[in-house]
């Protein structure tokens, strides 16, 4: 802000607001510490008991319920599946994060565009698809969470292209619930929670899939460890 702005938004307003708050809370005993006001956390850490296999099924079911397309494969099957999915859409330019294992797209006949700071939004808009990993997935809500890790890239690459392929490792990336997800995520990282393709209910509260984010979200659940490919 310019220095000429005087005190706008400066310390005087800060002190004024904090002072008003303290006067407004005259009824709160001075000895009360924030933790003294009770918050009972007797809600569930997860809803229902599930085996790992049941959690995977629930994730697939909930993703599909919000119009994500779900596939299952194993490590060996991942490259051919990705190749097939990209080919069936006629994708030519495919954005990938810098840390995406090289083997994943070995079989795909596409031009790879690697994420970089130099990549402009307009160039991203010219890409057909994007392939990423994820930080974790939540079964109860049908959500994948991206934390900008090396196999996910900057937030914009999973946003601007119209087709997002997201790979989830079954062995260690699926949690049951929102509380379990938050425990595992690092708050300092930029996080994007994705539950189905972009959607709107703004017209007569009728849900329509596909507005500004990718209109097609395909989630691939992979058995085994595809990281070393």
């Amino acid at each position: 802000m310019s220095a000429a702005s005087g005190d706008v938004g400066g310390d005087a307003s800060r002190e004024r607001i904090l002072g008003r708050i303290r006067r407004a809370l005259a009824d709160v005993p001075r000895y009360e510490r924030p933790r003294d006001h009770p918050v009972v956390r007797d809600y569930l850490r997860a809803h229902g008991e599930r085996t790992p296999a049941e959690s995977v099924d629930l994730l697939a079911e909930n993703l599909a319920d919000y119009r994500a397309v779900v596939h299952r494969t194993d490590t060996a099957g991942l490259p051919p599946l990705l190749g097939r999915l990209l080919a069936s859409r006629g994708a030519r330019r495919v954005v990938v994060p810098t840390g995406l294992p090289g083997g994943w797209l070995a079989g795909a006949r596409v031009d790879l565009v690697t994420d970089s700071v130099a990549l402009t939004p307009r160039e991203l808009d010219g890409a057909d698809s994007v392939v990423t990993g994820c930080a974790l997935a939540i079964a109860e809500t049908g959500t994948v969470v991206l934390d900008s890790g090396p196999d996910q890239g900057r937030r914009r690459i999973s946003l601007v292209p119209d087709h997002h392929l997201c790979v989830v490792r079954i062995a260690d990336q699926i949690v049951d619930s929102v509380p379990q997800a938050l425990e595992r995520l690092a708050p300092g990282r930029p996080l994007t929670w994705i539950s189905g393709p972009s959607a709107t209910s703004d017209i007569e509260l009728d849900r329509v899939e596909g507005v500004h984010g990718p209109r097609t979200l395909e989630v691939i659940l992979v058995d085994g460890d595809p990281r070393s490919m």
Partner: peptide
């Protein structure tokens, strides 16, 4: 169960 997108950010992140 969950809205399509939730964004969380903390200050600024280099290059993102």
């Amino acid at each position: 169960r969950m809205n399509p997108y939730t964004s969380m950010w903390t200050g600024t992140t280099a290059e993102d």
